[in-house]
Amino acid sequence: MIGSLPSFDRLVAELSKLPGIGGKTATRLAFHLLRASREDSQALAEAVLEMRQKVRFCSNCFHVTEADPCTICTDPARDETRICIVQEPQDLLAIERSHAFRGRYHVLHGVLSPLDGIGPDDLKIAPLLNRLKREPVEEILLATNFTVEGEATALYLSGLVKPLGVRLTRLAHGIPTGSDLEYIDAATVQQAVDSRREY
């Protein structure tokens, strides 16, 4: 902290709140902004404000959007009978990058994490069940992460969705494309063997 520069200190304090940014990195970023042109700093400040003003969550799928409902929910080319459930908006973007899924999405905004006190009521599960009542959904693709919490969340959702007669699928998991078997960890190899298929 530079006591004689309260505005500089304020910026460092605000930058330090960002994930993965400690005091040193925040100070380095602040000095970078100090050396940058006034226009660049202004553009950054305006971009942050504009993003906060315009971006919100879609009231249907809870993905980030500037228009509500989002462009995915309103795209007529999308298969409305399929919904892919993901943990976070970033996971949705990862699936979109693959171009492998052309249905719609539902973002849970987290996973069940009993150790952190996160239960079903803290996730966007109730809105999902409402969607299943009003949309012609035939398949749910569970795409939560393959962590302990992600798997437990998928299990919890399967208990809610199965009785509704909707087809339930789960992302496959195993050996990543382009990798050597000898470098894969034992748990992944075990899952790949368990999930083997006819060839």
Binding site: L115, V148, Y183, I184, D185, A187, T188
Partner: peptide, 12 residues
Amino acid sequence: SRKRFGASLEPF
């Protein structure tokens, strides 16, 4: 990195 830790750091 999946090399050093893989799935080893999962709870339980």
